[in-house]
Design a protein around this nucleic acid. Structure first.
Length: 819
DNA sequence: TCAGATGTTATTTTT
DNA sequence: TAACATCTGA
């Protein structure tokens, strides 16, 4: 369009309160089909705008239309826009949708995650403060490895430090913009533990600096430090970005908040000269979020950022989007009811115009496998009914829950795909290969080098490694240089030869990516190929007699394919670009919408996605809410939000399931229904098998086939109304888990559930079995007890049945009797 | 130095 | 269960 090529200097004035009556002429098509609140969010012009967007209220639509409007009206060049999303996938989608609205790709727009944007800035400016532009990004596993070394070196484990404690604390501090020095200033050195932690923090920071590396948290915090230390650098970006938009604002942490603050400041020289620039000083800021969907407090997200937005940015306009365009009313009612149990929140009710839709289906399985079988069966039914597999998703709280699901899915021949989990890039062999690349790209990266030093086995052991490290330090040379001079270490001839060979290989590969090389940098795939061949890494794997190594070799081949693909998509992509991209991929980023498979993912990864049918599995105490969250202040409330996020992902069908027993680390434990289940009004749920009914003849194999009227569902579920408590039929009582960590959970509801469930569930109480006893099982028939393991409620009988062979049974609840 | 054995321990969510 | 650490003997 021709207007886009001649931006007007004068902003188009749109009266926000004037509605659409006399709106901007260009705006009309961008406003079509939007409700009044959405329109206002698109059209409002001011320094600060907060869009409180309930789940499914069309916020992406609003954001994209807003950006397109700014560009189309000539108020902004694409390059003046910075939009921050939570994942790369969301960024790509937003870019595409804006491009679609504009009818062309808007070049120069920054639409990316916090982390990617910061990497971009840091690569440009790294030389300002002692890093080189070829810095490496350490992912969490790398950080862990580094901390592990440090704890060992400093013998911090004698203070009871664990790797996860130290990494978590460092991460937390960095998210609050503390560094080792500033923390040391406030630390209490009389406490030996704290003194030791400071040591660890110092050593960790020094190691990163020496390695020319940033960890995830650094990417944000160091950018803030950079802006603060070098105002002229900050000013460059303040001048450039006139419109900043941040999605999922409720999940920003303090560092991210500070970054936004820095970026929205008015460029200083403007203020000094008293000039009112046409942009009106600082950049305009639009944030979108929903405090009910804040689920990342554990990683430093500070809900106050959104709650106190109006105080932070005086004069900010707030727009509320409550109309939901995604789900049926039944699903929304369930979501509303659940979330209303979180006190301390602004009341907000999602509503829809599409009607009630189907009831929520509930199911209680005998075991995790039983539950998985139910999920698989229902998916098969949905598919037969015409629903595509990729419109179906299965959510769970922890990654370990995938095991049972996968087993059953494979057996049922359901096409599925697991997002996140043990990611491709977390596999040891892939990390090895990537370490080769990192060692080439960044010669200071000691962690990467250490990783490959003896992979594959070259006879370079810990002793040699220490010698090399010491030599490098004494002579103040890089690790690589130390390797080149290995002869001076007077090690054995074999070891010396191995070191020299590896050094030679790395040097050779470095030449391939030298920008001044004739013909430019070699493609990543070529570099990797050379490294893998000459190091004999793949060959060693193939020669191994461990059958898993063959799969590992194939994974490395797969990585090679990935690099080729990368080269195809980014003809100018450098090794550094590749490493960056790989470090910053999110679990959802490799979600392929057209894959034709069912998607399995954690509730956390599910945020921002939506599906026609959603299965929420493992809705049990200790899993959702997770046991680990019980101690945290605000833990149960955050877990409730997680449940809420899960519910609101569903468009048409919602299935909620749990199991009565759950296998965890080889053991089987009794599971109790989640407290959140009761918060869903009973009339919204149709229980195919409610927690109360599950005992009846339930077994792993049979539970799915029996006929079920479902008419009992309401009754057995109705423990809340049925037990005649004083709460009446009104809203569920909140405060049940109000955050003051009651050890066994909410007093009243919990006991009601417990009584109710154990009242109907088979409970063998203190039935004692000893080896030699004969028993009869409802499904397996007669058998003989071989041994009894475990204690109390977790006692397990190992039984050989005449008909079906050996089984392990949880004595407390197995449908058995002694003969 | 390394392979194998044996013992131990922890299992939330993720850019 | 499985990943991991530590130990042992070659």
């Amino acid at each position: 369009m021709s207007d886009t090529t001649t931006p007007r200097l004068q902003p188009v004035v749109v009266d926000p309160s004037g509605g659409s009556a006399g709106g901007a002429p260009e705006g009309d098509e961008l406003l079509a089909g939007l409700n009044p609140e959405q329109r206002e969010a698109v059209v409002y012009r001011g320094q600060a705008l907060l869009i409180v967007a309930g789940a499914g209220s069309g916020k992406t639509r609003v954001l994209t239309h807003r950006i397109a409007g700014l560009i189309k009206s000539g108020e902004a060049w694409p390059s003046q826009i910075l939009a921050i999303t939570f994942t790369n996938k969301a960024a790509a989608e937003m870019r595409e949708r804006v491009g679609h609205l504009l009818g062309q790709v808007a070049e120069g727009m920054w639409i990316s995650t916090f982390h990617s944007a910061c990497v971009r800035i840091l690569r440009r400016e790294a030389e300002n403060f002692g890093f080189t532009k070829s810095f490496t990004i350490y992912d969490s596993a790398d950080s862990r490895a580094l901390v592990k070394r440090i704890i060992k070196d400093l013998q911090a484990d004698t203070f009871g430090f664990t790797v996860s404690q130290v990494t978590a604390k460092i991460s937390k501090l960095k998210n609050e913009l503390a560094d080792a020095d500033s923390y040391a200033r406030t630390a209490n050195f009389n406490d030996p533990q704290e003194a030791m932690f400071v040591e660890c923090f110092r050593a960790y920071s020094r190691a990163l600096r020496e390695a020319n590396a940033f960890d995830f948290d650094d990417l944000i915090s160091q950018t803030v430090f950079l802006f603060r230390a070098f105002p002229q650098v900050a000013e460059k970006y303040q001048r450039r970005f006139r419109h900043i938009l941040v999605d999922e604002y409720q999940d920003t942490n303090h560092a991210q908040y500070s970054l936004i603050r820095e970026l929205t400041k008015a460029p200083e020289s403007n203020e000094l000269s008293g000039l009112a620039s046409f942009g009106g000083g600082g950049a305009s800021l639009t944030v979108v979020g929903d405090s009910d969907q804040s689920i990342y407090a554990f990683r430093g997200a500070d809900i106050r950022n959104i709650v106190e937005f109006e105080r932070d940015f005086p004069g900010a306009r707030v727009v509320l989007l409550e109309q939901n365009y995604r789900s049926t009313q039944n699903i929304l009612s369930a979501a509303n009811a659940v979330i209303s149990n979180n006190f301390d929140r602004k009341d907000k009710k999602l509503w829809t115009a599409v009607g009630d839709g189907e009831k929520i289906i509930g199911f209680t399985g005998y075991s995790g496998h039983d539950e998985a079988q139910f999920v698989a069966d229902e998916i098969a039914k949905l598919h037969e009914g015409g629903m595509a597999y990729n419109d179906i998703a299965v959510f769970y709280r922890t990654n370990s829950q995938t095991r049972a699901l996968e087993e059953i899915f494979i057996r049922s021949a359901l096409p599925y795909r697991v997002l996140g989990g043990t990611k491709f890039y977390e596999r040891a062999e892939i990390k090895d290969a990537m370490a080769y690349l990192s060692a080439v790209a960044n010669p200071f990266d000691g962690l990467a080098l250490r990783r490959i030093l003896n992979t594959p086995k070259r006879g370079i052991g810990p002793a040699t490694e220490t010698a090399l490290a010491g030599f490098a330090e004494r002579n103040e040379i890089s690790y690589r240089e130390a390797m080149r001079r290995a002869k001076e270490l007077s090690l054995g001839p074999k070891v010396t030869g191995a070191i020299l060979q590896l050094a030679g290989l790395l040097d050779e590969a470095s030449e391939l990516v030298d920008p001044s090389r004739v013909g430019g940098e070699a493609p990543v795939s070529e570099v990797l190929q050379v490294l893998m061949e000459r190091s004999a890494y793949v060959a060693t794997l193939r020669a191994s007699r461990d059958p898993q190594d063959e799969a590992r070799a194939e994974n490395v081949e797969e990585l090679l394919a990935v690099t080729k693909e990368f080269n195809r998509n980014n003809p100018d992509g450098t090794l550094l670009d590749f490493l960056t991209e790989v470090s910053l991929v999110a679990a959802v980023d490799d979600l392929d919408d057209s894959s034709g498979t069912v998607s399995l993912m954690t509730l956390h990864t599910a945020k921002g996605l939506e599906y026609d049918a959603v299965f929420l599995t493992g809705v049990e105490e200790d899993l959702l809410p997770h046991r680990m969250s019980a101690g945290e202040p605000g833990g149960p409330a955050e877990e409730r939000r997680l449940f809420y996020v899960g519910i609101t992902r569903a468009r048409k069908r919602l299935f909620i399931s749990l199991a009565m027993t759950r296998a965890q680390f080889g053991e089987t434990a009794v599971a109790m229904p989640s407290r959140y289940l009761q918060e869903i009004p009973a009339e919204l749920v149709e229980w195919i098998q409610s927690p109360g009914m599950a005992s009846r003849g339930g077994s792993e194999t049979r539970a799915l086939n029996g006929s079920r009227g479902g008419s009992y569902g309401g009754v057995s579920y109705g423990s809340r109304s049925g037990s005649g408590s004083s709460s009446g039929s009104g809203s569920p009582r909140f405060g049940a888990d109000g955050g003051y960590g009651l050890p066994p959970g909410p007093p009243r509801p919990k006991t009601e559930w417990a009584n109710r469930v154990t009242g109907q569930v088979r409970d063998n109480g203190d039935l004692t079995l000893v080896p030699g006893d004969r028993i009869k099982h409802a499904d397996f028939g007669e058998g003989r007890v071989n041994q009894v393991t475990g204690e109390g409620a977790k006692r397990v009988a190992h039984v050989t049945f005449e008909a079906v062979g050996a089984k392990k049974l949880l004595i407390k609840i197995a449908p058995i009797e002694k003969l």
